[in-house]
């Protein structure tokens, strides 16, 4: 890690990050007594059951054989006749893989747009002086108070006027550069010490070089938080694709799932298999990247 530009250790601008080394030097206080340890783990497991239990139950339902009584009074978590039949049945009855591909297309567009657009704007707003900077920043801040649902209808009208109603690009387009992400990147760049920039200027680096060689490498934590949130947001979004898309073959996974549940409400195993197909990819994405996510949290990327 480049020590000078570590965003967790701001030098010039004040940030709310914890001063380095606060956690050191408290000898003995951090040790946990065995009794406290047991209590803590018991509580952790209890909460784990509440948060993960429903997912496991759904997974179990999706794997239970058709001959198995899923309505039994004494619930059984482990399927007696485990089978993948329902996954096959779901993919046979509705084009789940097409839906998944549609969701992926939208998510990739949204992630790419946000990482690129928000980084560029965030850098310019925090590291470059230009007339109108304050005004632009104020505009970004002002839109934060506006809940997205308030403008969703006129946003649909805009997208329709572009001829993009009922297209995947129309689903992705409005979310491709989020105001919140611009502000997150702005904050991240702002916490780099200004001296580094000044030194680079003395060495003759122009704005682009400072962005590519100094700015971007030091805000990787925040970039990954932006990317993870953009992906999850796009993959999970329901209301907006529901409004934009009308053709069933263009549905994203969430809209497709709702369609599936309406059609097969009498077959919980099938619906369970469908939800698992939508759920498992996002869990894999998050589990792989959670390290960056929690690191970004510690860097202060998640502060409202």
């Amino acid at each position: 890690m480049t020590t000078v530009t570590d965003p967790a250790r701001p030098v010039v601008k004040e940030t709310s990050g914890p001063p380095a080394g606060r956690r050191r030097g408290s000898f003995g206080f951090n040790t946990v007594s065995p009794r406290e340890k047991v209590v803590r783990y018991l509580l952790l497991v209890f909460v784990l059951l509440i948060t993960i239990g429903p997912f496991l139950w759904q997974l179990s339902t999706s794997l239970k054989g058709s001959g198995e009584d899923i309505y039994t009074r004494i619930p059984k978590l482990l399927p007696a006749q485990p089978t993948f039949d329902h996954y096959k049945a779901v993919t046979d009855t509705i084009p789940v893989w097409d839906y998944a591909r549609n969701s992926l297309v939208v998510a990739v567009l949204v992630v790419g747009g946000n990482v690129l657009g928000a980084s560029l704007a965030g850098f310019a707003l925090s590291r470059l002086q230009f007339r109108g900077r304050k005004l632009v920043l104020g505009l970004f801040l002002a839109t934060l108070v506006l809940p997205g649902e308030v403008t969703i209808i006129s946003q649909y009208v805009t997208v329709r006027e572009f001829g993009l109603a009922n297209t995947l690009f129309g689903v992705a387009l409005p979310g491709m550069i989020g105001a919140l992400n611009v502000l997150l990147m702005y904050n991240a760049f702002r916490s780099l010490p200004i001296e580094v920039d000044q030194a680079a200027i003395v060495d003759g680096a122009n704005a682009w070089q400072r962005l590519v060689y100094i700015g971007l490498p030091s805000v990787r934590g925040t970039i990954s938080v932006v990317a993870i949130f953009a992906f999850i947001g796009a993959w999970d979004d329901f209301l907006w694709p529901l409004i934009v898309l009308t053709d069933p073959d263009k549905y994203t996974l969430t809209v497709g799932l709702q369609y599936l549940s309406g059609t097969f409400s009498n077959n919980p195993r099938l619906i369970a298999a469908g939800t698992m197909i939508a759920f498992i990819p996002i869990v894999i994405v998050f589990a792989t990247l959670q390290r960056f996510f929690f690191k970004g949290v510690e860097e202060g990327a998640v502060k409202g």
Binding site: V47, L48, T51, I52, P54, F55, W57, Q58, I232, W235, D236, D237, F238, L253, T254, L257, Q258, S261, I271, A272, G274, T275, A278, F279, I282, V283, F286, A287, Q290, F294
Partner: peptide, 18 residues
């Protein structure tokens, strides 16, 4: 921590169906 965060990561549609 990751496990407690899982319901957030899952789509509202998925968890509502569950």
């Amino acid at each position: 921590r990751t496990a407690f965060y899982t319901p957030v990561v899952a789509s509202a549609v998925v968890v509502a169906l569950i």
